[in-house]
Structures are given as structure tokens and as C-alpha cells.
Amino acid sequence: MVGVGRRSVGAGHDTTRGPGTSARSVWAARLFIAVVLVYLFAPVVVTVLFSFTTSRRLSLPIEGLTLDWYREAFADPLFTSALTNSLVLAAVTAVVSVVLGVTFSFGLARLGRRARGPLLTASLLPAAVPALVMGIALAVFFTALGRPPGLPNAAIGHILVALPFVILTLNARLETFDFSVTEAARDLGASPLRTFRDITLPIIRPSVIGAALLAMALSIDEFVVTWFTVGNQQTLPVLIWGLLRRGIDPTVNALATVVLVALVCLVVLSNLLSRRRR
């Protein structure tokens, strides 16, 4: 934990670390971060831990370890259909929101600064409306159209939830994109499609994949909008909600751990990819 001091040490100031930090305040800072991390990860640790314990009731001390809850969860046909539906929704959400998001972000990048700001803000609006309101608005909308609730309705909701984050990610990437390379390709006679495929896409690919993985993670974790649009169909969060309402059932912890592992993989990958080429 030794800081890197590039500048000379000023009179009485320890510039090797953050501005003006004494040894005692560094310890206070470490304690603060530790407490926050415990707060953030306590629920995660509890869930994963109790997905492997033998007792039905969640209490300490732990009596023994087992994989039974996973076996029970995977044997449930509801789980299989929920898993399939969640994966289908995630894939559809990723593809559609990325296609819409990429085209939109390119359109934004071509605009002047003054027009870009308000449009970007407007495109992030769905993220600022409570999911509950979005859920009931979509439920009312589909009812008005005479469409019964189901997976397609939920897919629309998921895309709406994911699109602002996809646009945010891609917009950040395109801010540093050098448009002269695409203009050069066009001048050399490449069609717009070919320019996009051979020049633009290879450059922005990590960010695009990063955005797609983020959209999948958002979709797999989405509960509120789904609950109002999906009807009697299952997705993983809808299934978990149903089990939770019925009372204590340790298979929930196993299901949750499966979801957790999937989400963490997606987010870590997404984070790594979006960070490259900055």
C-alpha cells in the first residue's frame, strides 16, 4: 500500500498519498472501506453460504454442508423453464438494445455539442423513472392493445431498462472515436456497410460486447417490470419471488447463487471489455 510520489514532498505535506493524509486517517479510511464492503457483501455471503448448509432454517452455527438444494432446484421443471426464459430474454435484450444503442450513439456523435447533451439526457430518461411506473405503464399499454401478457411483452420491458445503459456505455466510447478513419475508408470507395464492418466495428468491438453483456446482466436481474408484463410465465427472478412468498425454502439460496454467479461473470467481463482501448 505504498503510494507513488511523483512530485517533490512539499513542506509538511505527505504528497505520497492522497492530499494531506496522516497514518491515523489512512487507518480510519481503511476501516471505513472495510465496513462499507461488509455491508455490501453481507447479503451475498449469507445467500451463498446457506445454499450449501444442511439445516432448513437459516441460523448459526452451521450443522453440515450439502448440495441437496442445488439438486432439488435443478430437478424442478419450473426452474428449467425459468432458466430458459431468462436466457432467451437476456439474448433478445442484448441484441436489440445493442443494435438500437449503437445506431443511436453514432447519430449522437455526429450532432453538434449543443444538440447532443439534451438528446443524451432524454435517452437516459427511462433509467430515471421508477421501474414500478414503467411496469404498470407497459401493462396498461399492452392491455389497451389487446395483447395478453407474456414473454414478448417482458422483452420490450427489458430492452427499455437496458437501452439507457447501453447508450451511456457506447456514448462514452464514441466521444474519443476518431471519425477521420471512417471518412478515409469512404473516400477510398468503401460502402457505408463495409466501412462499418471492416473499420468501425473492429475498433469499437470491446465496448459493444461490454454493453451487450451489461444488457444481459440487467435483463437476468430484472424483476419489477417483468412481474407486471410476463403474466404466468416464469423467469428466474419471478420464480425466486414466488418461492420467497411461500416461506422458507433453502432452494431459493441455490437458485440465487446460480443467478449470482451468472451476473458476476457478465459484469466482470463487461467491465474488462469496456475498459480496454481507452
Partner: peptide, 8 residues
């Protein structure tokens, strides 16, 4: 932690 499952 943000993506460790909302319901969970």
C-alpha cells in the same frame, strides 16, 4: 455487489 441479484 450491484449485480449480485436485486431480489436476493
Amino acid at each position: 455487489s450491484l449485480f449480485s441479484g436485486y431480489l436476493v
